[in-house]
Nucleic acid binder design. Structure first.
Length: 212
DNA sequence: CTCTGGATTAGCT
DNA sequence: GCTAATCCAGAGC
């Protein structure tokens, strides 16, 4: 494995070669809003050509299946949303606007099609690789489509279990409840009343949030 | 089969 | 604030 150079602050956060503790499946089987909050502070890790790309999750959105008009699975099962019907702990990756991918973490028991959209991460490792993948743009990993591009996450990872290479979730830091902001989701105005539900979560004062 | 619009982003006005 | 870029799932016929 190629050696990764980290700043001191990031080294404290992400011990890339020691004690890699992946999130257990149980983590994902809980209430989706709880999981969306609990995912804040966890590390998303991508192994690409033997290099580590990683970041701390700083912004998420909960999508509540049959109970949520904004959720892709609201109207039931279809080819696209199949992964959401699986047991929690797998990825649901969809393609949007003809050019972007978005990455979701499936939650809940099998048959309950709920998920958490990962909207932003704070880069911790493999930053040079992310810059290349993002064509050296300034904003590397804020916004669901941006982080997918920076980590080369695409449809290949649809239904991928998130405790396995080359894409997994690693135990990170716990964010205290009083540092979690709860507000409305982005881009769901079509969903009527559900557009006003506070299902978006982010870390207070974090510099890598996609939108204030 | 055709048509429409989207869990977005960047760049311009 | 506005809109182009660009594809495919879902809906309607």
């Amino acid at each position: 494995m190629k050696k990764i150079i980290l700043t001191e602050k990031n080294r404290l956060l992400f011990n890339y070669n020691e004690k890699i503790e992946k999130l257990p499946v149980d983590f994902f089987l809980d209430d989706t809003q709880k999981v969306a909050k609990a995912l804040l502070g966890q590390f998303l890790v991508r192994i690409l050509n033997g290099n580590i790309i990683a970041g701390k999750i700083v912004e998420t959105e909960a999508y509540l299946g049959f109970n949520d008009p904004a959720c892709h699975s609201y109207k039931g099962k279809s080819e696209r949303v199949k992964p959401m019907f699986n047991q929690g702990g797998v990825a649901y990756v969809y393609f949007i606007y003809g050019m972007y991918h978005c990455f979701n973490v499936v939650t809940q028991q099998k048959g309950v099609p709920e998920a958490v959209l990962i909207r932003a991460i704070e880069p911790l490792a493999g930053i040079d690789i992310m810059k290349k993948l993002r064509d050296y743009r300034k904003n590397l990993t804020s916004g669901p489509a941006n982080l997918c591009k920076a980590m080369e996450i695409d449809k290949r990872f649809n239904n991928h279990p998130l405790n396995a290479n080359p894409l997994y979730l690693q135990k990170g830091v716990q964010i205290p409840d009083n540092q979690i902001i709860k507000t409305t989701r982005i881009g769901v105005n079509y969903a009527g009343e559900a557009a006003r539900w506070n299902l978006r979560f982010y870390i207070l004062n974090n510099q890598f949030i996609s939108k204030k």
